[in-house]
Structures are given as C-alpha cells and as structure tokens.
Design a protein around this nucleic acid. Sequence first.
RNA 1: GCACACGUGGCCUAGUCUGGAUAUGGCAGCAGCCUCCUAAGCUGCAGGUCGGGGGUUCGAAUCCCUCCGUGUGCGCCA
Length: 571
Amino acid sequence: MDPLRRFRSEVESAAKEAFRSMGADVSFEIETPSTGIADLAVPCFPLAKVLRKAPVAIAEEAVSKLPPMATISKAWAERGYLNFNMDTAALAASTVRTVLEEGPRYGQGEERPEKVLLEHTSVNPTGPIHVGRARNPIIGDTLARCMRACGYDVTTEYLVNDVGKQVVLLAWGLENIDPSEVDMVDRDKADHRLVPFYRKANQMMEEDSEVAEQVADMLVRFEAGDEEVIEKVRKTASIMLDGIVQSLNAINVNIDRFTWESDFIKDGSARKVVDELSKCAVCREDKGAKYLDLEGCGIHGRGTKFFFTRADGTTLYTTRDIAYHLDKFCRSDRTINILGEDQKLGQAQLANALRFLGEERAPECIFYSFVSLPQGRMSTRKGVVVYLDDLIEEAEERAMEEVRKRRDDLSEERMEEIARNIGRGAVRYNIVRVQPEKQLTFKWEEALNFEGNSAPFVQYAHARACSILRKAGDYDRSADPSVLTNEYEAKLIKELAKLPSVIEEAGERARIHLLPAYCHDVASAFNQFYTYVPVLKGEELRDARLALVEATRIVLANALQILGLSAPEEM
RNA sequence: GCACACGUGGCCUAGUCUGGAUAUGGCAGCAGCCUCCUAAGCUGCAGGUCGGGGGUUCGAAUCCCUCCGUGUGCGCCA
C-alpha cells in the first residue's frame, strides 16, 4: 500500500472541485515541489488560458473554494501555485503502521501477469569481465530486482557468444600453445588463467599466416557443424564463463538462464530466419551475400545494408540474434535488453528485420556508455584494463581497513564478513548511482567512495537502526505513531512514505538511479533524527520512536535488497 | 564526413521525457560538534556563464536551430 495515495487523491478531488466551481473542468498536474516549499502543489499556469485570468489570481480564488480536507493541514496560494501540506500526524500514523504491517513487502507493487525476459551481461567469453562492461550486469540485475518488486515475473538471461573468431582463436590457443610459453598470472581463477593464452594467440595469428589459416579452418568447420570443433570451442567458452559467473556472483548478480548462441545454428532456427528474410521485398544480394536494404528505416550510412548471410551462406551474429529474439518472444510478454552503446546499430537492424518478418514486437533496449580509464578505452588484449575482480578485491581491502579501525572488538571472521558486504556493495552502488547513458571515467577514489552518497552511508544508517532496536529489546508496537510530529520525525516519515512510488517509477520506467538517491535521502533523514532525537531515552515517546526506527530499518533493508546490497546489522 | 548519445560549481551528480517557484545531493576545501542510542555521522561557510550562440514562450537547465567538445557506430566481426 502506498501511504501517500490518500493524500494525493484528496488533493486531486479538492482541487478538481475548486476549479470546477470556477468553470474550469480540466485535468491538472499534482507535483512535489523540488524546493520543499510544500508537500504537494498544483501549478495553475495551464489554467490561465481556459479561465483567461492570471495564474496568481486563479490560485488565490481556487484556495478559497477548496472544500474541507481531512488529511491536509494547510492549503495556500503562492505565486500561481496551489500549495498543500499533509497532516503530519495522519501521515505518521498511516506510514509507520503500513511499514510495520507489511514488513519486507512494503514498497512492492501488486502482482502483474506479464512475464519479463531481461537479457543482460552477455559478454563474450574471451576474457574476465572488466569494469568497462561491468555496468551491464549491475544495471541488469538491479532492474530485474526492481521490476520483481514492481510485481513482474522476471527471468534474467545471458546469451553466450560461443560462435565466432575470437572464441575459436582462444580454443586454438589453449590447444596449441605450450603453457611454458606464456606469462604467469597472479590470480588463480579460471578466466584469468586463460588471458595470456588469448593474448599470445592473437599475437601469433597476426604474425604467422599459417596460424591464421589454422584458425580460419577451425572456424569453417565450426560453422559447418563439425561436432568435434564445436565441443572444443564450447568447452573453452565454459571455462571462461565459469570465471565470469563467479565474478558476478561475488557482487550478488544472479543469472537465471544461459542460452548458447551455437544452439541457433544447431537447431536450424537461424537458417529459418535466413529463409524468411530472403523472401522479403527489401532483400538484395551482393556477390552471394544477402542483405536487407533498410533505406528509409531511420538508419544511416553503410548500415542501411544489413547483411544477414556471408557469401558462403553462413549466418552472422545479428541473424542468430534474430532467431534468439523470436525464441524470447515465445517465452515472455516483455523483452528487455541491457546493451553497450556499440550495439545500437545492430539493434536497429534487428528491430527492422523483426518487423519485416511480420513480428509486431521489438525488444526494449537500455544502452549504457562504456566506462573508460583515464588513459583511454579498456582492452583485455592490450592489457589496458581493470578487471571487476580487481575492483572487488580492492574495495574489500579498503573496507577491511575501515572496519579494523573502528571495530577491533569483533572477531577476524566477522570483520571480514562485514568488509565483504561493504566493499561489494560500494561497487554496485557507485555504478547504479549514475544514469547508464552518462560517459564514465573510472577513478579508484570515486569507485571506493565510502562516505556521503555511497553504499556504506546507507548501510551504516541501517546498522545504527539495528543497534537501537537491539538495545531496546521488546517494545509496544501498538504505540500511536501520530505523536511523531517534530521536524526530524516528520522529515523522516515523509521519506519512508515515498518508497512505493520510488519503486514504481524506477521499475516501470527503468530509472534505477532513483533508488540509490532515495536510499541516501532516507539514510540522511535518519542520521539527522538519530543525532537530535533521543529514542531509548525518549520517555513517553520511546515506543512510538522505536516503531519509527523499526520502520526506517525495514525501508532501508527493502531498498538495499532491490539494489542487491546486504543490510548489515552492525558495522 | 554522416548518424546516435552525453556536456550542470575544482571533481561526480539530480532535475531534461512531461517548460513553471530561490537548480538536487555528494566528493574535495574551510570552520565547528563525541561525559548521551556506532563520528562510515551531524551543523555551518565558501563555490554556478546549467558547453557557446540564436530562436519559440508570459516563463527555458528542460522544446527547436546552429556551432564547439567528448563518447559510440558506420565490417560479408561478435
């Protein structure tokens, strides 16, 4: 249940009645002023044309025509706005009671019938996942959690690119390069161990034409369906994928299903796409290679020629992706992709091709900009790279230093557990904090920020709430929360009341960066309350305040859960 | 060159879709606050041509045009 709903709807019907009595039966907006001047406001500017009056005058007149309102403590006209303040006691009572009653379910939406298939990560299994791409799983996993909270049935999926030159080359390298010829790696993890082989194989292929031929030969056999080669390549991809999945699990990213790209070759569905596309009116041929002429489809440059077969008739990546999408559409009502901005053209071609196949649906795409290093774009091959594993490790170490400083009373194990939760959480938080499309340059001091707008700030507030509740023991939960009306209590309660609307907007409109901002607002309001309002020594207000602390604890825990962060009870 | 995206105090960022009140927070800086529920905290100060220019509007960070800067794409690669 949304505690703000009754306040909004009362404002809406009251304003509607006032406007109607003035002769304006029109729709209007209800906004939350960013300046904090009022809780809710109706701008009267759009009514000026209908009523042929100045907005200031309209607001003045409307305020005098408002009916009495039960949940609004104050209504006034100011500079063309109709402003409202919610009744603090009423909001306190309904919010605290709702949160305590609903507990972990507070903030969640009604169950929805739509099945959502969300594809994210899908990085090529040719190297460990690096920070340049790490935005993908974090955005994807957070959106999945958020949409689940909105009530959707969400499945996350990873498309494993086990087709193509780079994986084949890696498989070749593992088979033909003697381990003594490559550099050692310092990290004992499957995906990292393969990196030197990948680098060496790339180098050999560039320098030795015979190697290039062998790789090309392997590729042809792979495409022709040679079981032995396919097995070899898949096995290589599996090793790499295991390492990638381990890294993802470390930051609490879970993938429900893996789909192997080569399956669309094996089961003939990619072939079927080729056959169907070949029948399209816009299908053309260039020296045996088939393409769709997408002139006038919003695509510019050479990309208007969308090749879906090579001259030898074999399929291309996007062709197989079309087969994959047709498969996804059968399994879901909504299909969402989290993709790097380099995929924009491919997705535009895919969407057009699907349309020509008579498919009415298209995937909803969220594109993110790459994270680069101060010295430029990351590249595993060139060694200009910060791996996700490096970042996680560094974050945990930084967190451990901090924990050791403050909590030498704890056991080593407990300190490590706390440091793990904090370090890993900081990594996720600092990525979802900013909108996906913003360009980002990776800087250690920013990625490891533990103060202010950061995961530890929020987790710390949660730990503080837990600490108070632990010390309080049992208390009277039925205490009347409407006594919580001082400035700090009121501010905190207003924040708590927003969770349902924040989850709804973040999930419905894929604006997940709203969640960390909200967490920060709640934590910040709680820290102020904590500083100025005594709880355990709150005398006759003790129980009501304890209920507020518990409500805050629940809200923080629920929001942290959606962000994929742990809610530590102490730190 | 063409296309798409981004540009907000020294640094990071909200607000841009849906134009409206004194532009949101954080980091770094400066000055304060631990006999009292964890100071990863709290309070205060300082810091802004919302990339530049033009236009639309009663009103523009927000819409339109143009220029500049950055990123990405323009493979019979994936």
